[in-house]
């Protein structure tokens, strides 16, 4: 039953899916760049739109919430418009992330850590 999407975080790099090291863009030096996997649970309308129950994203150490949104927007275009603002790394009004039991909509600089429980959901509906 479980659908599982996967998307690398770096927009221009397919290497990042598996590598724990990356080349510095500016020079030839290699630096240590730890990565971690973050599973984003997808609930309600976002699940209907994406047909995914969860999305696995590879994140750099120190990644922010905006990095998750950017990765989702890039890899799952269906989210753009109704759920993620078109052309922006920002959720639209009625959507939020539940991260470890707290809701976040605008705190894009929030640092995400390994082991964080992250869910994307619609905040309200019904009548």
């Amino acid at each position: 039953m479980t659908s599982r999407g996967s998307c690398g975080l770096k927009p221009d790099s397919h290497r990042l899916n598996t590598s724990w090291y990356e080349g510095s863009r500016r020079g030839q030096e290699w630096k240590y760049c730890p990565m971690f996997r973050c599973v984003v649970g997808v609930f309600g309308l976002p699940r209907e739109v994406t047909e995914l129950r969860e999305v696995e994203i590879e994140l750099e150490d120190g990644a922010r919430l905006r990095d998750i949104i950017a990765a989702l927007r890039r890899e799952i275009p269906a989210l753009e418009g109704d759920i993620i603002c078109a052309g922006e790394d920002r959720l639209t009004d009625n959507y939020a992330f539940n991260i470890n039991g707290r809701f976040y909509q605008d705190e894009n600089e929030l640092q995400v850590r390994p082991g964080d429980r992250v869910a994307l959901l619609l905040l309200a509906s019904g009548g």
């Binding site: 309600g44 619609l122 019904g126 009548g127």
Partner: peptide
């Protein structure tokens, strides 16, 4: 739909209570 378009959907998004408020939709 009136207001009837959403209960099934919002049960899965956490808005609509499930199982006498003791359950989890998904």
């Amino acid at each position: 739909y009136g207001t009837s378009s959403g209960a099934h959907r919002s049960a899965l998004s956490g808005d609509t209570p499930v199982k006498n408020w003791g359950g989890i939709g998904v």
